[in-house]
Design a protein around this nucleic acid. Structure first.
Lengths: 336, 336
DNA sequence: TTTATTTACGAAACCGTTTTCGCCATGAAA
DNA sequence: TTTCATGGCGAAAACGGTTTCGTAAATAAA
């Protein structure tokens, strides 16, 4: 049983191909009665239009591309949920592409998109991304693109972010108020703007409370879980070591807990710890984990909504539409 | 700057469109020298072929569809990682579609796929799916489809599963060996084969150890987290209540821990608990969680590999290729 | 009655590729 | 010399839709 196409429908109904097409697209040129007949027959024969044939003639492929570093991460999987919720409503499909935090992969994926595979792009850049030529290329090629969470400051398009600076500040301030004076900061990237903003918030908080930052305690983590674990072990093995830790990425939770266990350090008695995280299990960890929780679903949803506005009206100006959705400090026992 | 197409290349090189196409596809008809010139110019002008134009003329869209109940779940996100790892290698892109556990959504998504949006499908059915007509339709339409994890027994195609029966047995046996005699079973669906197989394993273990199953303690959970929580509260509030729990889905971890806390039941002293789960945080929960851990990445990778074999050779017989990859019991403190 | 307009539809071009087929050299075989 | 392959390329059809344009019939306006 081969798939029926518009030509088959035409034969079936003794109408021309163009009439069928217009009827299905509810054109004013076609009479109510004919439309009715066409639609009825189309359903009866399970006709489904080939989206790519349509996409050739100026119309849309009805695919959007979502480019993220990884999917096994609460933030990104929730954001994807948000994106998908609006894509589904708009009749669009979602192409998920993973960069695995590699700049090379990101470049290749975006280059592929030049070919017309997708109508628009939602992007959260890799931790290695510091140059944005590949993104500007895509945009100047006419593809609308909206950043979410991890943005390139120098690309002129909509960016949906959270209040990273303030969150970094709030996190640090919370630890200070819990009597930490030596606070370590675990960053994920030197080039990523969210990482830098959180770091700036951390530094500003230290400054406001007259605490001297210690370079030794600001650690740039890698994409290698083992190595990160060793860095954390080393951090917590120093004498005069930190008694508070701010981690900027969910993946570091396990390594920190394990390192503390290994070194027989008690959380929160010996070290207080909080993490930027959307982990659902934060509240049932041992001890329960204080988090800065980002509005992941909301951010995905907002970014997608904006992208679809641009897809509907090609003259929609994305450059004026950036938005910041605040994160939330959820205090639990790891900083008690 | 509009995208360059094959016609533009032809003009640029004073060659015909067909020559360009053949050169790019490394046809024997074209001289080495011409191929070289074409490829060089294509790269210089950043030519990327439109995959959908190719797909029209018999070739492939180079998209595969991945249909899963949700993405915010460790099993599925890891499986997607596995799928993506081979798709990327094959030059394919991954269309992720979420059913949100709704049969209606699943039907709609697969129907869309009839239109030629994807070249093949990887499917893990929703908890509501008990009829498989929509799947058989798709297959008889010529689309290769491979199940992973959640399969329909009565559809004749490749199925990548884990040893659900044995895992259910092992889980239950482990609790019995930890001196539980009243063991509750939290299922996710009455129609899902994985759920039923795990249940059968549970029942068999009870039988082998001469324990009478108690209908009251076999609970069919829903897609509503609140309701599940209440069901668990009720389960654990009965007199003569269970002292062991097997949960078949990761999402139930939080509710069980919370319910125990609410009822002042200690895990593992008052209730021993284990869960089918791929949560990375299992080992740092309070208490650390005994899990049956599925080979999620591996399953996704295997399913995708099989699908690509079928895509390469249209005569490849998927019906003979089912595979079972075993899960692992990881014993931690929640069943100590 | 004649002319203009509207309604409802069909023919054909078009989107960007791939593929079949035909053509013209060139050199080899007869 | 004639005949035959062969190598290298172009013209055109095809894929499955959409869209422009043309047109016949019906209706309205003059």
């Amino acid at each position: 049983m081969k798939n029926i196409n518009i030509k088959g429908l035409a034969r079936e109904l003794n109408l021309s191909v163009s009439t069928i097409s217009k009827a299905l697209n509810d054109s004013y040129e076609i009479s109510k009665e004919t439309k009715h007949r066409v639609i009825e027959t189309a359903e009866r024969l399970h006709y489904v239009p080939n989206p790519y044939a349509s996409s050739l003639r100026g119309r849309r492929s009805k695919n959007i591309g979502v480019v993220v570093p990884e999917v096994a991460d609460s933030f990104f999987s929730l954001a994807i949920n948000g994106i998908e919720s609006v894509a589904q409503k708009e009749g669009y499909h979602v192409l998920i592409c993973l960069t695995h935090e590699r700049f090379e992969n990101e470049k290749n994926i975006l280059k592929q998109f030049q070919g017309g595979r997708v109508d628009g792009v939602l992007l959260s850049v890799s931790r290695e991304t510091s140059n944005s030529d590949h993104i500007n290329n895509l945009i100047s090629n006419g593809l609308p693109l909206v950043f979410f969470d991890r943005v390139c400051e120098d690309v002129d398009t909509a960016k949906i972010t959270t209040n990273d600076f303030e969150s970094g500040y709030t996190a640090t301030e919370h630890l200070i108020q819990q009597n930490c004076r030596k606070i370590a900061f675990l960053s994920i990237s030197k080039s990523l703007s969210i990482s830098n903003k959180r770091l700036e918030g951390y530094l500003e908080a230290l400054h406001d409370y007259k605490i001297k930052p210690n370079k030794r305690d600001i650690i740039s983590c890698t994409n290698d879980a083992d190595l990160n674990y060793k860095l954390i072990l080393k951090l917590l093995s120093q004498k005069d070591k930190a008694n508070g830790i701010v981690a900027t990425v969910e993946k570091l939770t396990g390594p920190v807990y394990k390192a503390c266990e290994e070194l027989k350090l008690k959380i929160p008695e010996d070290v207080k710890f909080l993490c930027f995280s959307n982990l659902e299990t934060a509240s049932i960890l041992n001890p329960s984990l204080t988090t800065i929780t980002q509005p992941a679903f909301e951010m995905g949803k907002t970014a997608a909504t904006l992208l679809f506005k641009a897809l509907e009206k090609p003259d929609f100006n994305l450059t004026k539409e950036s938005l910041v959705i605040p994160s939330e400090l959820l205090i639990r026992k790891s900083t008690a």
